[in-house]
Design a protein around this nucleic acid. Structure first.
Lengths: 235, 235
DNA sequence: GAGTGGTCTAGACCACCAG
DNA sequence: TGGTGGTCTAGACCACTCA
C-alpha cells in the first residue's frame, strides 16, 4: 500500500471538520450538534478530544454550549477580533524603523474631577501627569499623555523617565489586573498638530487605556497616533 | 472540624495562583516556571490540569511555552485585546435605541484596480457596490460602503436588500473563513458629512473588514461611524 | 540524546438547566 | 430530574528543541 502516514484524529481535525460542516451549511444556524459522546463515537476518539475541539469553537464564538442544552451553531455570531497591543517601541521596531523617545512635560498635583471620575479615584489623590513623544526614524509617531496615580505607584516619584518611556517603566515595575481600552477618532488640536507635525483638524487615531490593580486605579494613558495610523487584526 | 467545603484544586485555581505570583513579582519577567510535573506535584493535581492552566495563560499572552524550553514569564507582554464586533443592529439595540436601515445606492460592475488589489481578486470580476445607512433612533449612526464579489456570491444579484442590510443577509447566506479588520480615523468628506449629519473634515472612526472563504475573497465593507463613536474592550 | 510541553485515552464525578 | 457539558485523573506516547 502507498497509504500516507494517516495521523490519528486530533482535536484540530475535529475543529476543522465541524467548522467545515457549519460553513457548508450542513449544520445551519441554530442547529443542535450531536452530543460529545456521539461525536466521539463518530470520530472514533475520546470524548475529551471532542470536548476540547468544541470548547475552542465556543471560545471563538462559532457555537454556543449549554449543559443539558447541548451545542448549537450561533445564528448571528458576535465576532471577536483580537488586536495585539504592543508597546510603542515594539510597534515601531516592527516597522523596521528606529525608535526614539522624548519626555515632553512632567508635573505632579491633585487629580482633577474628570480624572477622578474616569479612574474611580477617591478624592484628593496626587497624580503624575506626563506628556511624551515617540518617534519612528525621527518622525513623530505617537503622542502620549499619561496620568499615574501616585497612591498606587509611589515609586513613580523617583522614576527616571529621561531615557525610558513611562509605559515600559510601569510595565517593568507595576503589574495590573484589569484594563479598559478605548478606540476613537479625534481631530488634532494645536498641541497635537504641533507634536505630530500635522495641521489642526487632521483626523487622528487614538487609543486610551485605563488599568487597575485589584480594583485600584493605576494609570490612564491616551495615545494619539500620527495621521494615517491603522490598527489591524486577522482572524 | 468546621472545615469549609474546600473545593479541589482546578485549572482555574492554578491560573489564578500563577497569575498572582507573576503579578506580585514572585516570578518576575523572564522567569522560568517549574515544569508541569513539578507544578502538578505542588498543586497536588494531575499534569493535564496544570497543562490546561498554563496553556490558557499562554493564549492570553502572559507566558511563553516551548518544548524542552519550559514555560517562561513574558518580559514585555504583547497584550491581546478582544473587541466584540457585532452587527450594527445589535450594537444599536444594545444602546437601547431603535434601529433603522436604509439602502442608499446599489450598482454592479467590473471591479476597479484598487479593489482587485485589496481583495486579491483575479481580473475582470463583477462586484456589487452598495451604500447604506444605519440609524439609531432616527439619527445617523453608521454609513456603510460595501463591495461584494459576485463570483463568490452569485446569489447576491437576487438579494432583497430593501428591508435587511447586506451584512445580515451575507451572514445568513455566506460563511467565511478568514477576515481582516482595519481600524482608522478619517475626516468626513462631503458625502460622509451629508450622510452622518456633520460637517466636512469632522474626524470619524472607521472599521474596514475584508472576508475570505477558503482563500476566495467575499466582501469588503467600510463602516464609518457617527462623530464621537468609540470601540471599547475590557480585559 | 534527553527533557519538556502537546496531545490523546478511558474512565469518573459533578453542576447546571431544559423539559 | 435526567441528560448534557465541565472538569479531573493517571497513564501513555509523541514531537520539538536545547544542550
Amino acid at each position: 500500500m502507498t497509504s500516507p502516514p494517516e495521523r490519528k484524529t486530533g482535536f484540530q481535525d475535529i475543529k476543522a471538520e465541524v467548522t467545515r460542516r457549519i460553513q457548508e451549511g450542513i449544520w445551519g444556524s441554530g442547529t443542535l450538534l450531536p452530543t460529545e459522546v456521539e461525536l466521539a463515537s463518530q470520530f472514533n476518539c475520546a470524548r475529551a478530544t471532542v470536548n476540547r475541539a468544541l470548547r475552542e469553537l465556543a471560545d471563538s464564538g462559532i457555537v454556543d454550549r449549554k449543559r443539558k442544552g447541548g451545542t448549537r451553531v450561533i445564528a448571528m455570531p458576535v465576532k471577536v477580533a483580537k488586536f495585539e497591543i504592543a508597546i510603542v517601541r515594539k510597534t515601531i521596531e516592527a516597522l523596521g524603523a528606529t525608535y526614539r523617545y522624548a519626555l515632553v512635560e512632567q508635573s505632579t498635583g491633585p487629580a482633577e474631577a474628570w480624572l477622578r471620575t474616569r479612574l474611580t479615584l477617591p478624592k484628593q489623590v496626587d497624580v503624575m501627569y506626563l506628556k511624551c513623544m515617540h518617534f519612528a526614524d525621527e518622525r513623530p509617531f505617537q503622542f502620549e499623555e499619561r496620568w499615574v496615580s501616585l497612591d498606587a505607584v509611589p515609586a513613580m516619584r523617583d522614576a527616571d523617565l529621561s531615557k525610558e518611556g513611562p509605559n515600559e517603566w510601569l510595565l517593568r515595575k507595576v503589574p495590573f489586573t484589569d484594563a479598559e481600552i478605548n478606540l476613537s477618532a479625534v481631530g488634532a488640536d494645536d498641541e497635537l498638530a504641533a507634536n505630530l507635525a500635522t495641521t489642526r483638524g487632521t483626523p487622528l487615531f487614538r487609543l486610551e487605556r485605563t488599568t487597575w490593580l485589584a480594583g485600584s486605579p493605576v494609570t490612564l494613558v491616551r495615545m494619539t497616533f500620527r495621521p494615517g495610523h491603522q490598527m489591524t487584526s486577522r482572524y
